[in-house]
Amino acid sequence: MSQGGAPLLVINNIEVIYDHVILVLKGVSLTVPEGGIVALLGANGAGKTTTLKAVSNLLRAERGEVTKGSIEYKGQRIDRLTPNDLVKLGVVQVMEGRHCFEHLTVEENLLTGAHTRKDGRAAVARDLEMVYGYFPRLKERRKSQAGYTSGGEQQMTAIGRALLAAPKMILLDEPSMGLAPQLVEEIFTIVDALNKKEKVSFLLAEQNTNVALRFADYGYILENGRVVLDGEAQALRENEDVKEFYLGLSSQGRKSFRDTKHYRRRKRWLA
C-alpha cells in the first residue's frame, strides 16, 4: 500500500458481530492517511456502514460489537471509546440517509454539531459562517424546519452539522444516495474543498463507485465483509474488474455486476 501522509486512522483486521451471532465483517483492514480521502466501495450489504460505525462506535447502539482486531486513531486505540469521546477527538460520522433532526431548523441542526465543543461561542459562530460559506443554500434556509428541506439540503445540513464539531476526520456514509447527479457532483466538489482547505480527512462509503473514485485518493472494495481489492483511485478506475462490476463499463460494453454470477466475481479477485 502506498499512500502519502502519516496514517490517521488504522483499522486492523476487525471482525464485527451483531446481536452476538451475526458475523458481518470478517477481517477488514484499511488505513486513512492524514489529509486523505479514502473511498470504501461495495454493493449494498457489503459492510461499509458497519465499518464506519465500528470506527465511530455507533455500533454499540445497534447491538453490534467489534470482536477481533483493533482500530487506532493517531496511534491510540479507540475501540472502547464512546461516540461522545470520538467526536471530542475529532472523528465525526455523517450517517447514511442524512438523519437530520427533522423538527429542528437547519441552523439548530448545525448548532447541535457543536455540542461537545468547549472553545466558546465566538469560535462556533465563526465555524457556522464557514459552513454557510461552503453551503450558501443552507444560509437561505436556516430558519426552515429541516424535515421540510430537500434531500440535497438535508445532506448539506448533515455535513455542515459534522463540520461544526471542528472535526479532523469525517466518516461520510453514502452522501450520493437518492440525489440527482448534478447535486452529487456539487456535494463531492465541496467535500474535496473541505479536504483541501479545512484539512479534513475523509473515509467515504459509497455505492456510486464512479464519483467516489474521481474524488478519492485511494479506494478499498468491500464484498461480503472482506476487502477484496484496494489501490490508488486512479489504478482502481482502470482496473478491468472494477470497470466491469462497479463502473458498469467493460470491453464488451455496459454491464451491471448484478448480471454476473457472484462466484465468478469472487474467484477472479481471489485468484
Binding site: S56, L58, V87, V92, V94, H99, L104, H115
Partner: peptide
Amino acid sequence: TRVGLALRAVADDHQAALAVGIP
C-alpha cells in the same frame, strides 16, 4: 440553551444525536 437544544435533538433522532456526540 445548549442543553435544551441537545434535548430536542435527542427527541428527534437518537442515532443522529449520538453521532454528533451528544451523550
